[in-house]
Design a protein around this nucleic acid. Structure first.
Length: 457
DNA sequence: CTAGGGTTAG
């Protein structure tokens, strides 16, 4: 018996190692081999497998493992279900999350605090902060002991759903009640505040972090670096990067992509190329985001042959191009003046099931407008179900450039009715255009509407 | 079962 238990433990270590390296086939083979020589897999074996399938394949594949474990006479436990629910959350499948939760209760398995943490995270991820808050309150009122992650998930969810102030308030309140923030907590807040354009508060939290005894890690540095770049403090951003290097942090794919993207965006191609080379030489495995970053580099340099080749390379490597990949190429083609190529790729993108990629449509609208084909841009606009302020900005500006101020003005009115306020420069171009072509009344009317819209905001 | 950082358009 003792020997058998030990063997199962060894089996589990072996399975975990294969699963970590995404070698699910090998993990399965080891289980079969083990059974042949009398090593019986236990609930931990199956849970490891369920978790790996959730992460690398999908919840449905993981679910079929559950059938197999039941057949083998092993009952799933709370950890099995937590893995499944967490997998469904990653894939934004809310109804599946709730179904699994229900199923767990029906199986007589008691959810633990992690089950509720995952559920909260799920509600936040799907933009339902009220539901998440209800779960949070339930945890506090129940006899479960909240885990520090419970608070972190709550603070992060509030930030991501636009409730930065509530997140800060919760943070301070918790501190008053003896909650000791972890490094993650600081990272969550710094990121949230940066994204909400509250760099003053972000700096304050960064200072708190420095005084807390925690050492900022690579995630902290990447977050702050991104914040610098967004507020156009490029030198400061690069400085942070070298500080990160000198402290010996691994400069990982996240950090590299942050820096390379900003170098590409600001046209510093030598630097971008140098870092890309460094990233590859350092043996960092390229994932889809890195490939997308590389693609944006090639497009900016006008190397479209290489760009198309990269698409094939991505897919033959087993990755699937996402909406970013398509948008980057379509935008690149537009900016290079190859509208036909952009249209062709948009068509391809639709065929691949990305009809809802608004950013790509906006790129083509802008490209068509800049190429003097504003009527074709309007046609495309009319065929679109969803539009945003980027759509209107491009159209209004290009209509103005074409001298069609009344048409532009009509579109502007539609925006205002929908509660959108366009860029100051766009509004200026339209007002100036209307005035100089004698439509002073129209301009006056529009100005009044702008003022009203501002008041209603 | 473990929350946090990276890629797209005006």
């Amino acid at each position: 018996m003792m020997v058998c238990g030990l063997s199962t433990r060894l089996l589990n270590i072996c399975i975990a190692s294969f699963c970590k390296s995404r070698l699910l086939g090998k993990a399965e083979a080891v289980i079969i081999d083990g059974i042949r020589v009398g090593v019986i897999p236990d609930v931990v074996t199956y849970n490891t497998l369920v978790h790996a399938y959730c992460q690398f394949v999908g919840v449905d594949a993981a679910y079929s493992v559950i059938h197999r474990m039941k057949e083998a006479g092993i009952s799933p436990n709370v950890i099995t279900y937590n893995s499944l629910i967490s997998g469904a959350t990653r894939n934004r499948l809310l109804s599946q999350c709730l179904d699994l939760f229900e199923e767990m209760l029906q199986e007589g398995i008691h959810p633990n605090v992690w089950s509720y943490n995952i559920l909260m995270h799920c509600f936040f991820k799907l933009g339902k902060p009220d539901e998440a808050n209800r779960v949070f309150q339930d945890i506090l009122l129940s006899d479960l002991t909240p885990h520090p992650a419970t608070f972190n998930i709550m603070i992060n969810g509030l930030c991501k759903n636009g409730y930065t102030d509530n997140a800060l308030m919760l943070f301070r309140n918790l501190q008053r009640h003896g909650f000791v923030p972890q490094l993650v907590t600081y990272n969550i807040l710094i990121s949230g505040l940066c994204k909400a354009h509250r760099s003053g508060q972000a700096r304050k939290i960064l200072k708190d972090l420095g005084e807390s005894g925690h050492e900022p890690n690579a995630i902290t540095y990447t977050t702050v670096m991104k914040c610098c770049f967004r507020s156009k403090k490029f030198d400061q951003g690069v400085e942070i990067m070298s500080e990160m290097k000198s402290k010996g942090y691994t400069f990982d794919g996240f950090a590299y992509c942050t820096v390379i993207a900003v170098l590409v965006k600001t046209g510093r191609m030598e630097g971008a190329n140098a870092f890309m080379e460094q990233m590859i030489n350092n043996g960092i495995e390229l994932d889809l985001v890195s490939y997308n970053t590389l693609l944006s580099m090639l497009c900016k340099e006008g190397k479209f042959e290489a760009a198309y080749k990269l698409l094939d390379e991505i897919e033959s490597g087993g990755l699937l191009c996402d909406k970013y990949t398509h948008t980057i190429l379509i935008n690149g083609l537009c900016k290079a003046g190859n509208i036909a190529g952009a249209q062709q790729h948009l068509h391809y993108m639709n065929m691949m099931g990305f009809h809802d990629n608004l950013v790509a449509f906006n790129c083509l609208i802008d490209g068509l407008g800049k190429a003097g084909r504003i009527d074709r841009a309007m046609e495309l606009y009319n065929s679109m179900e969803i539009k945003d302020s980027f759509t209107y900005d491009s159209l209004v500006l290009n209509l103005c450039k074409d001298g069609r101020f009344l048409c532009a003005s009509k579109l502007m009115m539609k925006c205002l009715r929908d509660g959108m306020i366009l860029l100051h420069s766009t509004r200026r171009a339209l007002l100036d255009g209307l005035c100089s072509s004698g439509f002073t009344n129209e301009a006056r009317k529009l100005k009044l509407k702008f003022r009203l819209a501002r008041m209603l905001r």
